[in-house]
Nucleic acid binder design. Structure first.
Length: 642
RNA sequence: GCUGUCAUAGCUCAGGGGUAGAGCACUUCAUUGGUAAUGAAGAGGUCCUGGGUUCAAUUCCCAGUGACAGCACCA
């Protein structure tokens, strides 16, 4: 006699085992039609599953967010059926729901191309129209392996073989087709609906390992209704408009060319933006007790051998050799060993710790060609790097200080939220387990102290220590690691850094590797997308354009521009022979935040017409007032606080 | 690096076995105008590079390089 408790608190009893479909029908025909799945004591299940004991039950309908995952997962099954119907001999592997949609990985001699998608999508619509019910069956493990092996589905058989011994093996049928799946599923294929679209094809390694065969992946997006799908497709178009590579060209910020792959040619305006960010970070570091240094670009391989980088990253380093010299030099891929060299000059005392050594370190890494992405992932980049040499006791406090600084910096740049990942020991690493235990424990307790919520990223730490990663999201929803703090007991040991303790003994310092924005290149890319080129005034590469209406106003316009320049603003003067409408349009398209329009009237009255980007209204103000106003507005956020 | 797609004017793109076109941008001339495009004229191309097929290749084939998407990688 199961008693079913519903979300409104009401209880319904049933004489015996009862399915979700039956419960929904008992409540009402509307719900019976709308229910896609149910949640039984917190676990999602198919409508057809039987409930034999008392339970809390709620139903998922198309109105619920939770329906999205079911729709996407089922769309993946439908995709797989369609592909096997159209391309016999293709093996299925896995097909999960993902953010915004789903994918399915297939094994096939000939990879799918975008040209194949229309036919596959059409087939999917047929399968959905046929509306076959999804039915669940429990299989014996060996039978399941035998079944898929016989069918020639070796990838599926491998999956089952690797499932934990205690896991129930289930398959789901839809019409003639079936797939290994844990479920749950919608009642039938028709419930997937028509608000989906196949998006692209791609290669992907079996089980995410580059040593395994490459599969052919088909990506799709799926939504609850057409309106949601349209909104998503529109959002993609918007994202494309704010792509930093596009805005970088349109605003004349930078370019990249074949002769220097992965390196950036910063144009005047882009470099201005870069320098603004750099000056800001430099001020923040100085306020926070960091000392800036500069270390060599080319360093003998001996140092990299000692640090362990040569062994692990040699393939990713740029090597420089000279005919006249025996030695092999490497362009530095990171700054830490160099900073240790500075630390090692002279005897250090415990009184000097923590020592916070910062460098805008220009680094080079030979990144795999496929990893390059605009200015976000490059081969030549500059880190806002710093190493904090401290005692083990100081790790927690220093981490807290760092996180506070990082939060404040992100906020100043307009990033209100970010995620944190905690990466612990990787498989190949330096240092003993005992050292790793200490390092991980120290970082964890620091997180607690700093009140940092993190998700665990197992096995993703640096080879010398665990790390926190601070992740920002770009316009298209891609995540980019920017900030990081890493606890390192290993490098000081390897490079023999030590200080004199209060008892006159010698001890190893701990190194905290840390960066807030990560690399200037990546961060500027994210900033460009964050603001879609419409920067706040303090960041805007061109802050003001003075545009004339008639050439009689030219001398006054020059005077206006000069007054603004004297106030420290970046100004362009547009006295070109064009109508004011065209000038407004041109500068607006280039995202100039302020246009000062001057004509005869303004020249006579010594005023200016201030027009804000995107606004239609103008404000007529006396010259001195505008200068003071814009000067205040252009003050960087940290200087405003002072 | 792997899989796929792509490479034509500064930009966005069309075209196609007989050495090329549009819009915008650019230059010049006329126009001096009041808040998102004034008009006219002009200039601009090794059709990514190398090889092959062909009477003829920018177009077809092969290789390379680069870009894009995804995967793998990211000290």
């Amino acid at each position: 006699m199961p008693a079913i408790t519903l979300p409104d608190g009401s209880v319904r009893s049933f004489p015996g085992a009862v399915t979700g479909t039956e419960i929904a029908a008992a409540i009402g025909p509307g719900l019976a039609r709308a229910a896609l799945a149910m949640v039984v004591n917190g676990a999602e299940m198919d409508m057809a599953r039987e409930i034999t004991e008392d339970a809390q039950v709620k139903f998922i309908t198309r109105k619920d967010e939770a329906a999205l995952e079911l729709i996407r997962h089922d769309a993946a099954h439908v995709l797989a059926e369609a592909v096997q119907a159209l391309y016999p001999g293709t093996q299925v592997t896995i097909g999960p729901s993902i953010e915004n949609g789903f994918y399915y990985d297939f094994y096939r001699n000939e990879p799918f191309t975008p040209d194949d998608l229309p036919a596959i999508e059409a087939k999917m619509r047929e399968i959905i129209a046929a509306n076959a019910p999804f039915t669940r069956e429990v299989l014996d493990r060996d039978d399941a392996i035998a079944y898929f092996t016989l069918k020639g589905e070796s990838f599926k058989a491998e999956l089952i073989r690797d499932l934990p011994a205690d896991q129930t093996i289930t398959i789901y049928r839809q019409g003639e087709w079936l797939d290994l799946c844990r479920g749950p599923h919608l009642p039938s294929t028709g419930a997937v609906g028509t608000a989906f679209k196949l998006m692209k094809t791609a290669g992907a390694y079996w089980r995410g390992n580059a040593k395994n065969p490459m599969l052919s992946r088909i990506y799709g997006t799926a939504w609850r209704d057409q309106k949601e799908l349209d909104a998503y497709l529109h959002q993609l178009e918007e994202a494309e408009r704010r792509d930093h590579r596009r805005i970088g060209r349109e605003m004349d910020l930078f370019h990249i060319q074949e002769e220097a792959v992965g390196s950036i040619f910063w144009h005047q305006k882009g470099w201005k933006l870069y320098r603004t960010v750099e000056a800001y970070i430099r001020r923040r570091l100085e306020q926070n007790g960091y000392e800036e240094v500069r270390t060599p670009q080319l360093v003998d391989r001996k140092l990299w051998e000692m640090s362990g980088h040569w062994d692990k990253y040699r393939k990713n380093m740029f090597i420089a050799e000279v005919v006249e010299e025996e030695s092999t030099l490497a362009l530095k891929p990171m700054n830490c060993p160099c900073h240790v060299q500075i630390f090692k000059q002279g005897l250090r005392s415990y009184r000097q710790l923590p020592m916070r050594m910062a460098e805008f370190g220009a680094c080079h890494r030979y990144e795999p060609s496929g990893a390059l992405h605009g200015i976000m992932r490059v081969r030549a980049f500059t880190q806002d790097d710093a190493h904090i040499f401290c005692t083990e006791d100081q790790i927690a406090d220093e981490t807290v200080r760092f996180v506070e600084l990082l939060e404040s910096v992100y906020k100043d740049f307009g990033f209100e939220s970010f995620t944190v990942k905690f990466s612990d020991r990787p498989e190949t690493r330096a240092g003993s387990d005992e050292v790793w235990d200490r390092a991980e424990a120290a970082l964890k307790s620091a997180c607690e102290k700093a009140g940092v919520d993190y998700t665990l990223n197992p096995g993703e730490g640096a080879f010398y220590g665990p790390k926190l990663e601070f992740v920002l999201r770009d316009a298209i929803g891609r995540d980019w690691q920017c900030g990081t703090i890493q606890v390192d007991f290993v490098l000081p040991e390897r490079l023999d850094a030590e200080y004199v303790t209060s008892e006159s003994g010698r001890a190893r310092p701990v190194m905290l590797h840390r960066a807030i924005i990560g690399s200037f290149e990546r961060f500027l890319g994210i900033l460009i997308e964050q603001y879609a080129g419409r920067f706040p005034l303090w960041l805007a590469p061109t802050q003001v354009v003075v545009a004339t209406i008639v050439s009689d106003a030219d001398p006054y316009a020059e005077e206006v521009a000069e007054a603004l320049r004297s106030a420290g603003l970046t100004v362009e003067l547009d006295t070109s022979n064009q109508k004011i409408q065209a000038k407004i349009r041109d500068h607006s398209l280039h995202h100039v935040p302020n246009i000062l329009v001057v004509g005869r009237k303004e020249a006579e009255e010594r005023k200016v017409a201030l027009r804000r980007l995107g606004g239609a209204a103008q404000e007529i103000l006396p010259l001195e007032e505008v200068v003071a106003l814009l000067k205040t507005e252009a003050t960087p956020p940290d200087l405003r606080r002072n």
